[in-house]
């Protein structure tokens, strides 16, 4: 029951982007060098986020990536689903499962997995990118109490 590095790095890079700017394009390089992430890997992930309508890209010298909407309108669930697919502990409970087993209808374990998915979905639905950005500041203040800007 794991979130892959795609989901982990994707969220990391989006927070990095949101911390830099929410109104002007940010270059991929400046995000990845700050976060210590691989540029080619983040590019792959950003293409998926673009396809999902979470990011837009701007070409040209001042180009880069921008959030398509306010950070408060982007949920962790949207980001994770865009790069990981549905967050399901087992694959048979996902709508487009093409190989549900023959015991599907009489499977009691399926009810458990559906309950798990529902609870996890509502948790990640409730966390937005804006919450995460705010939390970065809070963690910063806690971890670096002496540091004054």
């Amino acid at each position: 029951m794991k979130i892959s590095t795609r989901g982990q790095y994707g969220l990391e890079a989006l927070i990095g982007l949101a911390l830099k700017s929410t109104s002007t394009p940010v270059s991929l390089k400046s995000i990845t060098s700050d976060c210590g992430l691989s540029e080619s890997y983040i590019l792959q992930i950003f293409l998926m986020l673009k396809k999902a309508g979470i990011l837009t890209s701007v070409r040209g010298a001042q180009g880069g990536y921008m959030l398509s909407r306010e950070p408060s309108q982007i949920s962790v669930r949207q980001v994770l689903e865009a790069v990981e697919g549905p967050l399901a502990p087992v694959s048979c409970i996902v709508d487009d499962c093409n190989d549900p087993c023959g015991r599907y209808k009489m499977c009691a374990a399926r009810l458990l997995w559906e309950k798990v998915k529902k609870r996890m979905d509502s948790l990640v639905d409730s966390i937005t990118l804006a919450d995460l950005v705010e939390n970065v500041y809070a963690v910063d203040a806690r971890e670096n109490p002496d540091y004054s800007i």
Partner: peptide
Amino acid sequence: KSLIQLCLNEFVWERMNDCLNEVV
């Protein structure tokens, strides 16, 4: 860990872990 990673750990991953364990 970077600040962003610390934040994701405590604000997303650990809460997901807690939620998962709580349900089961």
